[in-house]
């Protein structure tokens, strides 16, 4: 609310450009969504197929890592390098990771019982 806001009619070219841009973006999102569903399916599949726990555990953890990255970059707009305040957003995401990693590390090494 701090600054003057103006409503401007879009030009035809701008409209077409936005339309195309949105269509490309939408396609990317649908593809990523399909990949994520597929990865989830894989996670269930290895459990149902009754593989050794020594395969299942690292495999599911790996899939979880991939899912996080996909989530952040595809749906949370981390891939949008020219977005508003993308530097601040990255800082927050990485701060969050830096905060939660020692917690995770402490739990698996020294704390849990």
């Amino acid at each position: 609310m701090g600054h003057h806001t103006e409503v401007q009619a879009k030009t035809k070219a701008q409209y077409e450009y936005d339309r195309h841009h949105n269509a490309v973006h939408m396609k990317k999102q649908v593809v990523n969504f399909a990949i994520m569903i597929f990865l989830t399916f894989l996670a269930f599949a290895v459990v149902v197929a009754d593989f050794s726990p020594y395969l299942i555990k690292p495999f599911i953890l790996l899939l979880a890592g991939i899912q996080v990255v996909l989530q952040l970059y595809s749906f949370m707009h981390m891939d949008d390098k020219n977005g508003h305040h993308i530097g601040v957003i990255s800082t927050y995401v990485w701060s969050g990771a830096m905060i939660i990693f020692p917690v995770f590390l402490a739990f698996v090494t020294v704390v849990w019982w």
């Binding site: 701060s95 905060i99 020692p102 917690v103 402490a106 020294v110 704390v111 019982w113």
Partner: peptide
């Protein structure tokens, strides 16, 4: 930042062990 790294000092007597 450090505020997130110290929560277990409320739980010293829980028995987490000397390392923790």
């Amino acid at each position: 930042f450090l505020g997130f790294m110290v929560w277990a000092h409320h739980m010293f007597t829980v028995g987490m062990g000397p390392t923790a």
